[in-house]
């Protein structure tokens, strides 16, 4: 018995069993077991930020050397563009004022006016095929508090869907990307009364950078090139967030029409993203408490 207890294989087996139990327990709602990794996070996160900054600096330096001529040319074109945009901005300022007046007058509801938008930078990306969540540098202390069972949409700088926040800690958030097998969102063709369906991440399509579109009405014609946006069904994602375009459609089985979708957002190239958090309407009691 003593020999068994001292055996390295026995110790390794026990450790593996404990780790497996820990991994399963971490899947339970509100599991506190993840807190055990907090000390590691405190040490490793700053170190990783440092390595990332150093890598970015080196990359920028290299780009500055190799792209010098192209940058100068681009700079000249951009200066011209800035001058043109300044002129247009002056013209648009008046139009914007007019729009605000009309908006109030006609009660036009701004699509995302019920959401607060938080900016965040990507700290780390997926490390392999299966370790595939994205880490952002905004957490509870920045106002990104997430309740169990809740989630927030994440968009890129062009307001295209990137994924959704599934976990937050004090200073960081974790995002489930659009291409992940566990991701699902209700979408529709971007036109008036466009047909609705579900869009899922799929392991096999992921390597091609595509999503799977299911639950398509067989009587509706879906064609490659159609733009798909969120439908707003389910309540998690507001209506109208651009997702991507239809790449191909498979009508071979009329009872199960499927399609593939190429997302607009290219997660591998993103540096900054935006988290959409809905405004919480204050109840009468809360308002009264605030007044008191």
């Amino acid at each position: 018995m003593k020999k068994l207890l001292k055996s390295k294989w026995f110790i390794a087996l026990i450790v593996l069993l404990v780790l497996a139990a820990g991994a399963i327990l971490s899947l339970l709602p509100g599991s506190p077991i993840k807190n055990l990794l907090k000390p590691v996070q405190l040490v490793s996160s700053p170190a990783q930020s440092l390595v990332k900054k150093a890598g970015d600096t080196l990359s920028d330096f290299w780009s500055a050397i190799t792209d010098g001529i192209a940058i100068r040319e681009e700079n000249r074109a951009l200066k011209e563009q800035i001058a043109d945009l300044r002129y247009r901005l002056t013209q648009n300022e008046e139009a914007a004022l007019r729009y605000e007046e009309l908006k109030d007058a006609l009660h036009i509801k701004d699509m995302f006016s019920n959401y607060e938008i938080y900016g965040a930078s990507i700290l780390s990306r997926e490390s392999d095929e299966w370790f595939s969540t994205i880490r952002l540098n905004a957490g509870v202390t920045d106002g990104i508090a997430l309740e169990e069972g809740n989630s927030y949409p994440v968009l890129d700088v062009e307001m295209n869907l990137v994924g959704r926040v599934i976990e937050t800690s004090d200073k960081e958030s974790r995002v489930l990307p659009l291409l992940h097998e566990g991701f699902a969102v209700a979408g529709k063709v971007n036109e008036v009364n466009g047909t609705t369906f579900m869009i899922y991440g799929d392991a096999e399509l992921k390597r091609q950078g595509l999503c799977l579109v299911k639950d398509i009405d067989p009587n509706v014609l879906i064609e490659p090139g159609m733009e798909i946006v969120t439908s707003g069904d389910g309540g998690l994602f507001p209506e109208g967030i651009p997702i991507g375009v239809i790449e191909s459609v498979d009508y071979s089985n009329p009872l199960n029409v499927t399609a593939t979708l190429r997302p607009y957002s290219q997660i591998g190239k993103l540096e900054d993203v935006f988290i959409m958090i809905p405004y919480v309407e204050e109840t009468a009691e809360e308002t009264a408490a605030t007044v008191v």
């Binding site: 497996a20 899947l27 709602p29 990306r125 370790f131 880490r135 976990e167 974790r174 489930l176 566990g182």
Partner: peptide
């Protein structure tokens, strides 16, 4: 460190997608 940097997200028994812990430790150990 892998569990901190890029933990896998898995669909739990209740159908919700959750971030796991210790899968990275298990794998690399």
């Amino acid at each position: 460190i892998r569990d901190v940097f890029s933990p896998p997200a898995v669909v739990g028994l209740d159908g919700e997608v959750r971030v796991t812990a210790f899968v990275g430790v298990f794998t690399l150990f």
